[in-house]
């Protein structure tokens, strides 16, 4: 996990974002334990309360559940919700691409061609 201590994004958000990604991409599966709060704080050289806040945020999103005395565990992810989460990510990235294209005056057709080409390259 990477943490930027001087970033404008709060550290707890950075941690939450990275764990969220690991859960949504399936790197962390349902039932997997998250690192212990104080253990992670030790590893990342940050305070305990920061890690705790990150975990609480994930817990509010329903991605993890606290089990009293045992720490946090990843919830089994609903397949449809997973796809939806990914779709949202795709939409967001494509929107970014569209914005860039508009600024440069690149047309839809050209963007579609580029997308197809990149798709093929990625498959190889």
């Amino acid at each position: 996990m990477k943490i930027y201590q001087n970033s404008s994004e709060p550290i707890y958000k950075q941690i939450a974002a990275q764990l969220r990604e690991e859960i949504l991409t399936g790197k962390l599966r349902g039932g997997d334990p998250l690192p212990s709060i104080r253990g992670l704080a030790q590893d990342l050289k940050i305070s305990v309360i920061t890690t705790m806040k990150a975990y609480e945020e994930l817990s509010e999103e329903g991605l993890v559940t606290a089990s009293k005395g045992k720490g946090y565990f990843v919830n089994a992810q609903d397949q449809r919700m997973l796809v939806e989460q990914h779709m949202r990510q795709v939409e967001k990235n494509l929107t970014d691409a569209i914005h860039s294209a508009r600024i440069a005056g690149i047309g839809l057709e050209e963007v579609e061609n580029t997308l197809e080409m990149l798709w093929e390259i990625d498959e190889e």
Binding site: S36, R38, G39, A41, Q42, K45, S47, V48
Partner: peptide, 11 residues
Amino acid sequence: DMFREYLSERD
């Protein structure tokens, strides 16, 4: 570091 270690030893 030692603070965090102390706290994490008995979570």
